[in-house]
Design a protein around this nucleic acid. Structure first.
Lengths: 194, 194
DNA sequence: GTCGGTAGTGGACGGCATATACATACGTCT
DNA sequence: AGACGTATGTATATGCCGTCCACTACCGAC
């Protein structure tokens, strides 16, 4: 129980953590810098010592999200290197988007996309995508590098679309048993199978 | 050039139109009720005569969006009833999401999803989805009604995921020619083809 | 014409992001 | 050990926002 000190000591990461925690039960729109500061026990303006503005904080949070996602992809290594692993990646992505929908929304929202203002973010995203491309190549899709990229884009799109639509309640009028699973979607999706 | 009158005459639809127009070059987060009111030339509080709150206005705007989408689906009838039409629907959806990304974000955002607070919205969405399901059935997928729904969910997911990711710049690090087209994605996606 | 309800106005409140000016504590050099 | 520059927080203020409340202008029915 350390007393309240003037200097927080690790305000930067504390703010990122607090924001991510707040994101668990709030929409990103309802997020405020002030709330995060309050959470950490610091004045409303203290964050500006560590982040240029609110977007910069969100970008850091988003980058953390991409790192988490990348790790989740890597954790599916136990599934071997075939199509099964792609399905596992789909499940992992869906799990992530279901558990932290607000974070996903921040990660992909238009807010942070303006130019390369947040370099670490782009890099973290690229890395997650690269992991997926690698899995596609190793799954023996038999195509060129470009075709692997196209298939990766496709798989990312299906799963991302499905998970976010579901998280936002867009399939609310359908019974749960009517919905495909992420594995189904990955399985149905095959480049050039038509 | 009618003078400024006390009664606007059609404030409700004027606000919906103005909001949709504002959405063309603003993120939904940057939207304000006050701005919409200003646009229409009315005081900041006038909207409350027609909408319970900001969300109610956004819900009406979103419902309009779903109607537009439904019409776009229907307009692909010229493509016949086969897989080609499904591809055309994919292109139409992508076109819509590319032209009005802010609107799409409002339509699917979590903000309006809280319960059945906006009944017209749910209905408009259901109708758009039903149109897609019908197209899947007519495309001769040969499955049961439930399988048609599952395939429709899949197609909706790929296209929605792809279009929104693209609109938000998530594929910014990939060259354009590396990306699949919406038609490609629909073609690659076939229930039970594996 | 007057009367009641509907549509719109004006001002206020608290919360927000952010800017500027100020205060405090830490690290380091001596 | 002492002093001082800088990193880190605080205080105060501006201008937006959504929304509440009390008030007023207009319209149509009688």
């Amino acid at each position: 129980m350390d007393q309240k000190r003037y200097h927080h000591g690790g305000l930067r990461v504390a703010l990122i953590d607090a924001t991510r925690r707040l994101l668990l039960d709030r929409d990103p729109e309802a997020l405020s810098l002030r709330q995060a500061a309050r959470e950490v026990g610091v004045s409303a303006n203290a964050p500006y010592r560590h982040f240029a503005d609110k977007d910069a904080l969100l970008a850091s949070v988003a980058a953390e999200g991409f790192k988490t996602l990348t790790e989740a992809f890597r954790a599916t290594n136990g599934e071997g290197a075939g199509r099964k692993r792609l399905e596992a990646i789909g499940e992992a992505y869906n799990e992530f988007a279901t558990t932290e929908p607000g974070l996903v929304r921040v990660m992909f929202g238009p807010r942070l996309r303006a130019a390369a203002r947040h370099p670490g973010l782009d890099e973290a995203e690229r890395e997650a995508f690269a992991e997926l491309v690698r899995a596609v190549e190793e799954s023996g899709n038999g195509g060129s590098a470009e075709e692997a990229i196209r298939e990766a884009v496709g798989i990312w799109s299906v799963i991302h679309g499905f998970a976010t639509l579901r998280a936002d309640g867009a399939f609310g009028f359908l019974d749960r048993w009517m919905l495909p699973t992420p594995s189904d979607l990955v399985r149905y999706f095959r480049r050039g199978s038509s």
